[in-house]
């Protein structure tokens, strides 16, 4: 929901990042305000998953330029656990299985760690039991899953539901959902999406990274961004997603290339701008 008096939660400025010396993100700009839902769409290899991992602080990626402010604070200088405690949550595309650790013990550990950081009340196993039963309803999860090992033997849909359950427990300010719709059947998709909708408030925000528009039938985005080759090359409203669904991604790319070429010619006449040259170079790469 776009609102005039909302606060800026996330400010990404010209962010670039590389993995193993290869630049994946090449200057991302994005502003997310409270109450908003942003969808980041793009074909495989466009860098959208990398973007979500960089925001969460994955150690495998090196930030090579730009900045990210989370509620006004430099996010990039924080290790992943502090980003999480401050309210950044990443729902994984491939959640990790942790055999030997019960789901409820794990959820309680993360909840209490979060509470300790926020100065809130920690819950003992009994208190947590009541607390988590309520949260399970949000994702229609059978409480029996709480006694099983974290994600072990869970189906794809159950794992994704468990991610949203963790989101419900940790109550993040910014939730990044990385391909949360992948591998879900219609029922699971509906349940996961409805869980996310229930967790949306005017004070938090969601970034959905997705390849397909079908998730957007259930969670309505305020903004749709198209990512290609490590950049956001187009931003629109929810209708853009529908257009992408029918026309694919190539036309957006063509449009962007033409604009970049025009910009390149324009700047070549005058003094060369570093940003323009970099942009044209990357677009033709």
């Amino acid at each position: 929901m776009i609102s005039s008096n909302s606060k800026v939660i996330l400010e990404v400025r010209n962010l670039s990042a590389s993995v193993a010396g290869i630049e994946i993100l090449k200057g991302i700009n994005l502003t997310v305000r409270s109450g908003e839902v942003h969808a980041i769409m793009g074909p495989n290899g466009s860098g959208k998953s990398t973007f979500s991992k960089v925001l969460a602080g994955h150690p495998g990626y090196t930030v090579t330029g730009g900045e990210v402010l989370f509620e006004g604070q430099n996010l990039l200088e924080l290790p992943p656990e502090e980003r999480a405690r401050n309210g950044v949550f990443l729902a994984f595309q491939y959640p990790i299985e942790i055999p030997g650790v019960s789901n409820s013990a794990f959820l309680r550990l993360t909840y209490n760690t979060q509470q300790a950081h926020r100065g809130g009340e920690e819950l003992d196993p009994l208190e947590f039991h009541d607390f988590i039963q309520e949260k399970c309803k949000i994702v229609e999860m059978d409480p029996r899953f709480l006694d099983r090992s974290v994600n072990e033997g869970f189906s794809g849909g159950e794992k994704k539901r468990n991610e949203i359950l963790q989101m419900a427990v940790l109550d993040p300010r910014l939730a990044i959902l990385d391909e949360t719709d992948s591998g879900l059947d219609i029922d699971a998709l509906r349940i996961v999406a409805s869980g996310v909708n229930k967790l949306m408030t005017p004070d938090n925000a969601v970034i959905m990274v997705t390849h397909y528009q079908r998730l957007l039938n259930y969670i309505t985005p305020d903004f749709v961004h198209v990512m290609r080759r490590g950049r956001i090359i187009k931003t629109g409203g929810k209708e853009l997603a529908l257009e992408l669904e029918t026309r694919g991604y190539d036309w957006v790319d063509d449009e962007y290339q033409r604009a970049a070429d025009a910009h390149g010619r324009a700047t070549a006449k005058g003094s060369a701008s570093a940003a323009g040259a970099g942009r044209a170079g990357a677009a033709s790469a």
Binding site: A56, P79, R83, F92, I96, F106, T110, T113, Q166
Partner: peptide, 29 residues
């Protein structure tokens, strides 16, 4: 594994807690 550590860190657990939890889980199985 880096991915396992990152998963736990991204839930707010410190590297030490995450490490201990993963070793514990490996043995507990």
């Amino acid at each position: 594994e880096t991915e396992e550590m990152f998963y736990l860190n991204s839930r707010g657990l410190s590297p030490l807690t995450a490490r201990n939890l993963l070793i514990y889980a490996f043995a507990e199985e």
